[in-house]
């Protein structure tokens, strides 16, 4: 990824993220979050993770954001105006964040892993087609031979080959979530909830 584009996307992600944290109006915050996640999705794509990038947009910027906005509108939550700022949590929040960033920067600068770039660790698509063993479905190997990264197919293969069980657990989890939503927000038969 060209440096300039990376910095631009990072700026979008972090800048809108910052606005979420500082914004006073929940609607603005939600929209900023969507923008931030779009930037993040672009970063994913820059990391050759097209599938993840797409579902990041679909799930977050699409579904989750709509849910947030819907709730904000439904509950008619106003901006927190007129309330005085509570300094202690703000200061501690900033402090924790700064410490964490310093820590992460220190870790990143001291490990060799962080120096990898897409130049020194390039994807070897056509060579990979011969090596991927069980994942060697014709459609995947063909894609690889053609030099494109069939990452949705590869993720799908990993999910259903290695993580079939986990997928079902996640399904159960979504079901539990659904039950939870019904139990918690259904109106009572007897009238007002």
């Amino acid at each position: 990824m060209p440096s300039l584009l990376f910095y631009l996307l990072a700026l979008i992600t972090l800048g809108f993220g910052f606005m979420v944290v500082t914004g006073r109006n929940p609607v603005t915050c939600a929209l900023c979050l969507a923008a931030s996640f779009t930037g993040l999705a672009a970063l994913f794509i820059g990391l050759d993770a097209y599938f993840i990038g797409i579902i990041q947009i679909l799930v977050y910027a699409g579904a989750v954001m709509v849910l947030f906005l819907f709730i904000i509108m439904l509950l008619d939550i106003k901006a927190e105006e007129g309330k005085k700022l509570n300094l202690a949590p703000i200061i501690s929040g900033v402090l924790v964040a700064v410490l964490l960033v310093v820590q992460i920067a220190a870790v990143v600068s001291s490990t060799g892993i962080a120096d990898k770039t897409s130049e020194n660790t390039p994807l070897a698509l056509s060579e990979a087609s011969g090596k991927i063993g069980r994942a060697a479905l014709p459609t995947i190997t063909n894609d690889l031979k053609e030099g494109t990264l069939p990452d949705a197919k590869l993720i799908g293969f990993t999910l259903f080959d290695q993580y079939g069980f986990h997928l079902q657990v996640i399904g159960l989890l979504l079901l539990v979530g659904t039950i939870g939503v019904v139990v918690l927000s259904k109106r009572e038969k007897g009238g007002a909830a």
Partner: peptide
């Protein structure tokens, strides 16, 4: 040149931003 470190720092900053928000926002 964009290294893995760049991505990690961005991820770290976003994580820290989120954490700060969790602590500071009401």
């Amino acid at each position: 040149m964009i290294t893995l470190g760049h991505y990690l720092v961005v991820s770290g900053m976003l994580f820290a931003l989120g954490l700060a928000g969790v602590i500071a926002r009401r």
